[in-house]
């Protein structure tokens, strides 16, 4: 009897899907015979001396397939990192020092805010505004409002503590220092008022 002559149910028995008791009575003898043959199979590994070496030699002698450079560049690679603990501490220290050096202003708390009232007496003015380091010297950014009929112009601003320079701009043209505040040379032949908060 060859393997091909086994009944399909006997093949299931050999596959372990059925047991000998599951087979119909007329197939049990065939099943037992099949199991006996299976048990008699020599399962020791087949060794062919030198076959591995011959295969490896054949592979090594074959030229590697050529791939475009761009394809090789895009291929995923395995990167191995070896971290030496004694190098880690100084590296962290240098990194921290560089960050502190580069961004010192961002690491400190923002300055507190102070509200300041600016006042100018200009009875003949049609418009007065305030320009300074706090509004990028924009003559239109901070207009003053006339307070009453006696020519008093005023505005209140909340500014960060620090030093600010400024001037009033009267009628959009005339830059006027604050008569009530200390002033310094602006470098252009005029005076800037100084506010130290």
């Amino acid at each position: 009897m060859s393997d091909h002559d086994f009944h399909p149910l006997v093949m299931q028995l050999l596959d372990g899907d059925l047991t000998i008791a599951d087979l119909p009575a007329e197939l049990r003898a065939q099943g037992e015979e099949a199991l006996r043959l299976l048990a008699a199979v020599d399962r020791r590994p087949v060794e062919v001396p030198g076959v591995v070496q011959r295969v490896m030699r054949a592979l090594e002698s074959r030229p590697a397939p050529r791939r475009p450079r761009w394809k090789r560049a895009l291929e995923p690679r395995e990167i191995r990192l070896r971290i030496r603990p004694w190098l880690l501490a100084p590296a962290l220290a240098i990194a921290a020092a560089l960050i502190v050096w580069i961004w010192p202003a961002r690491l400190t708390a923002p300055p507190p805010l102070v509200t300041v009232r600016f006042v100018l007496v200009a009875p003949d003015a049609k418009a007065v505004s305030l320009a300074g380091t706090f509004n990028q010297w924009d003559a239109r950014a901070t207009p003053l409002v006339r307070a009453g009929a006696n020519g008093v112009w005023t505005v209140s601003l909340t500014l960060p503590a620090g030093q600010h320079q400024y001037a009033f701009v009267v009628d959009g043209q005339r830059w006027v220092p604050d008569p009530g505040a200390p002033a310094v040379d602006d470098g252009f032949g005029r005076r800037n008022s100084v506010l130290t908060l």
């Binding site: 102070v114 300041v116 600016f118 006042v119 009530g180 008022s193």
Partner: peptide
């Protein structure tokens, strides 16, 4: 009191 305003009308 906080720093005084810098000027007077």
């Amino acid at each position: 009191h906080p720093p005084a305003p810098p000027h007077h009308p």
